[in-house]
Design a protein around this nucleic acid. Sequence first.
DNA 1: TTTTAATATCGTAATATTGCGATGTATAAT
DNA 2: ATTATACATCGCAATATTACGATATTAAAA
Lengths: 109, 109
Amino acid sequence: MGITKSDIFNAKQNRLANYFKVLGHPARLAILEYVAKQEGCICNDLVDELGLAQATISQHLKALKESGIIQGTIEGKSVCYCINQEVWGSIQAEIKDLFKQELSVKSCC
Amino acid sequence: MGITKSDIFNAKQNRLANYFKVLGHPARLAILEYVAKQEGCICNDLVDELGLAQATISQHLKALKESGIIQGTIEGKSVCYCINQEVWGSIQAEIKDLFKQELSVKSCC
DNA sequence: TTTTAATATCGTAATATTGCGATGTATAAT
DNA sequence: ATTATACATCGCAATATTACGATATTAAAA
């Protein structure tokens, strides 16, 4: 198969899993880190910065864009990418919330 | 390809990406939630609880075990699974740390 | 001891992801 | 107008993931 049975899980579980999945690749973490460090913007220095082909970077950027974590604005012939603080903040909040839920538990074995 | 070029990223990026990847499936989040709710233990009620085959659950449990988040102790003919608070706590800490790093950034576009 | 219950592992099919070259598209520069 | 630059998208190959039936394995129960 290879297809996830999303229908048997609740909305929150699917939503969270999708966030985690987007963050589950070092290239995308590196992109986030870089975009954040640059106080936003500046586009495909990423191709020079990370050691990946332009097509590959573009693909990872797309995944991050689709999650809402970053957004891109066309700026002349290049694109300005930056973090969408509202979305990124709410994702962080939801993840922290998950952490809080399961932190109270005692180990038993 | 399909193979991640881990060698071009730093250790922290790879480590974090792996944690996120493990959490990036609703079944594994559901398992974590269930194990936590049960104050640890109680094994494959999971097969009844979630709507997945025993082999599939076992596979997801293996992934969680390999990450260190949960641990299993043999208890008669069943296995007691529970969260390893130390590991799970340090993963949470590292993720929160990542969040802290990138929260100060201003949007620019 | 044979059976049953609770897992783990194997093998396999379906699908997803990663990565990249090639190519398309839009804008700026010449 | 032509060319160059900065992407996005397509198509493909390699590999990974998800899911499950079938088959171990191991220990309690009968």
